[in-house]
């Protein structure tokens, strides 16, 4: 037994001595040093990319705010549109965007939540479920310009809505529908099953359970998703431009069948016309500030609703 151990020891020592020839401690130390340096260099370069991204974001905001200074005042907010940059105001533009949202919010909420309820509570699995959900994820990937063509053909020409607020609102509703459906589905999925079972146990029917138990618990999630979808809709330009919104509308829209202009469209036309009148860039920047403030408020309210909901759980 001892002899075996001795042989093993001897063998170990031998192999250790052999290895010594291959492992050069100095060299490996050097390599380790190099690897550490490479690591630190890479890390600082990576952090530089983050700093660069934040810098670009800052540059964007800084330049827009800088060119809006002196133009953004109460008269600009409440005045009427005008070819003369010094006199132009965006009251009718804000009105247009607001009325668009008055169309988009209920339409997407009703269609989106109903679709989500159908998918999550009634057609849980099976062909129908997979057809509709595959379809929704495909719709989410369609460029907004294509939705504009759909709106132009179906709402604008077939339904004869032209380039009215209703046509624009319905087009934007279809565009953001996938967002609302997916977030409502998530919210409905998150309602624990024991709540449903307790409701059934008390003798409630399926629809009563959905209406009185599932929807009330899912409403914060649905609201958050819908507000985020609205904030996407309010900044969308391409579908509205494709609908053929006229270039300069001086009147405020009064009904949903009126032609209109909205914040992003007005930014677009003013940016395009910078070539003609330099001051239009300032008007566009001031309008962008308004749009960004609206977006900030929408997102902040979505975050507040979400946080309140999380605390309660």
């Amino acid at each position: 037994m001892d002899s075996v151990v001795d042989t093993l020891k001897e063998h170990g020592r031998e192999s250790f001595q052999n290895d010594k020839k291959y492992i050069d401690l100095g060299k490996s130390q050097e390599r380790l040093q190099r690897r550490k340096i490479v690591n630190i260099v890479a890390q600082s370069m990576f952090s530089l990319t983050i700093i660069f991204i934040i810098f670009v974001l800052g540059l964007l905001l800084f330049n827009i705010i800088k060119s809006s200074i002196g133009w953004l005042d109460w008269e600009f907010l409440t005045g009427r549109l005008s070819i003369n940059p010094a006199k132009a105001g965006i009251k009718s533009v804000i009105m247009g965007s607001f009325m668009l949202m008055v169309v988009v919010a209920p339409v997407t909420m009703v269609i989106g939540v109903a679709t989500a309820i159908f998918l999550e509570e009634y057609a849980k699995k099976g062909t129908l479920h997979s057809i509709i959900s595959l379809n929704i994820s495909n719709l989410a990937g369609v460029p907004s310009v294509i939705f504009g063509l759909l709106g132009l053909t179906v709402f604008g020409r077939m339904f004869g809505l032209g380039s009215s607020i209703l046509a624009g609102g319905l087009t934007l509703s279809l565009l953001v529908l996938p967002n609302v459906v997916v977030s409502s589905q998530e919210a409905i999925k998150a309602v624990p099953n024991y709540l449903r079972e307790a409701s059934y146990g008390l003798g409630a029917t399926k629809w009563t359970t959905i209406r009185k138990i599932v929807l009330p618990s899912a409403i914060p999630g649905i609201m958050t998703g819908s507000i985020l979808a609205l904030s996407r809709a309010i900044g969308e330009t391409a579908p509205l431009v494709v609908l053929g919104i006229p270039t300069l509308i001086l009147k405020s829209p009064e009904s949903f069948m009126d032609d209109f202009t909205a914040l992003p469209i007005q930014i677009y036309y003013w940016t395009l016309d910078t070539v003609l009148t330099r001051e239009y860039a300032n008007l566009a920047a001031a309008t962008i500030v308004i749009l960004l403030v609206v977006l900030f408020l929408l997102n902040a309210s979505a975050i507040i609703i979400r946080n309140k909901f999380q605390r309660r759980n």
Partner: peptide
């Protein structure tokens, strides 16, 4: 940091258009 980067995704494309052309 992550939300700051995601702010970039929330900015409307028309604003980027203005940024590209004017800045």
């Amino acid at each position: 940091i992550k939300p700051i980067i995601e702010v970039l995704a929330g900015i409307p494309t028309i604003v980027y258009g203005f940024f590209a052309y004017n800045t």
